[in-house]
């Protein structure tokens, strides 16, 4: 990728084009495996690149497992020394039984399980790559109607490897990091739609956006969108600079997912209030963004979960360590 703005322009044009086969385009342009090294068939991009693309995907409520494929499955398989298959992928941590090449067990709420060409599973001891023929899928969804399936396996699985050290923590962090980008993007999308609607909808003889009461609400939403975006981008920047295993990255990702999760509810609330009754109908597209905001804030660790993690870290470190933790410099 020649520059940040080229990458963003490319992402914008791809996610805006609803007529095309989105996943095929993501594969062809290299965005589907953006951060995987070129030697392993990826594009060799950075986490900052991936964050920018995921924010655009979130803003468009893109119905594809992009974070799951690039940030999670491709990373996990490559880290375990397994080759990364083509097609949409997903990855979860799960307590599957692995012995003598036989893998058995059940995984719940697997993102995009039914459409994945490969499901990378991190068990306490192994990394396992499951393919569609080896599993039984029971379909489920999240609030945004994205696949969250139950996957059962009882099969001989040739593609297994030992779990890399620290993989469980890193998988959890990467999932939260990716989800924070999607949240920040969806929040921006919901704000953009609300600002546009407030400029079009006429009541009392003028667009409702001319009323200070509506302006103040949209400005509050804008502040939440800015906070979510700044936090998500800064977490990606920290992860890129310090690595996913660094304490500073754990701190930043926890803070970013907690902050983005908080903003999600507030932005969705204001977006619906501004849209009035039309916004709560099936025919209106606002729901594509707000239902994802409601789903994603609870996935990969709710704000309550990450706040508690962060609070425990800060409390254990003591009062004099708070500022060094916030500034990332002990």
């Amino acid at each position: 990728m020649s520059s940040d703005s080229d990458l963003l322009d490319l992402a914008e044009s791809i996610f805006a084009d609803t007529g095309a086969d989105l996943w095929k385009t993501l594969e062809e342009t290299g965005l589907a495996r953006l951060t995987l090294p070129e030697s392993a068939g990826g594009s060799g991009g950075t986490l900052t690149d991936a964050a920018a693309v995921l924010q655009v995907a979130g803003a468009h409520a893109a119905p594809v497992p992009l974070a799951e494929t690039d940030l999670l499955a491709a990373w996990l398989l490559h880290a375990a020394g397994l080759s990364v298959p083509t097609g949409p992928l997903t990855a979860v941590a799960g307590d599957l039984h692995v012995a003598d090449g036989r893998v058995t067990g059940t995984l719940t709420r697997v993102p995009w399980g039914r459409t994945a060409a490969g499901i990378a599973v991190l068990t306490p001891s192994h990394v396992v790559l499951l393919t569609p023929g080896q599993v039984t899928v029971t379909e489920g969804t999240n609030l945004g109607e994205e696949p969250r399936d139950t996957v059962t396996v009882d099969a001989d699985v040739p593609t297994t490897a030992d779990a890399p050290a620290g993989a469980a923590d890193e998988l959890r962090l990467r999932a939260a990091l990716g989800r924070a980008q999607l949240l920040a993007g969806a929040a921006r999308g919901a704000l953009a739609r609300s600002v546009q609607y407030a400029g079009e909808r006429v009541q009392f003889g003028r667009p409702i956006g001319r009323f200070q009461a509506v302006q103040q609400q949209l400005a509050l939403a804008a502040a939440e969108v800015a906070a979510a975006g700044a936090a998500a981008s800064a977490a990606a920047s920290t992860a890129e600079r310090d690595g996913c295993g660094a304490a500073s990255t754990a701190f930043a990702v926890a803070a970013a997912k907690a902050r983005a999760g908080e903003s999600a509810g507030e932005v969705a609330r204001i977006a619906h209030q501004v849209h009035g009754a039309i916004g709560v109908t099936r025919e209106h597209d606002l729901r594509l963004l707000t239902t994802r905001l409601w789903a994603w804030r609870d996935e990969d660790g709710s704000e309550a979960y990450w706040q508690a993690q962060l609070g425990a870290t800060v409390t254990a470190a003591g009062p004099d360590a708070l500022w060094p933790l916030v500034t990332g410099m002990p």
Binding site: A234, A255, R259, E303, A308, G311, V314, L322
Partner: peptide, 26 residues
């Protein structure tokens, strides 16, 4: 934080403030 030392139960509220602080500084 110094006054809360050794008393569990406030982690979530502390974490909430710290996440907001970190985002603001960013």
């Amino acid at each position: 934080l110094a006054e809360l030392a050794g008393q569990p139960g406030a982690e979530r509220e502390v974490g909430r403030l710290v996440s907001r602080l970190w985002a603001l500084r960013s």
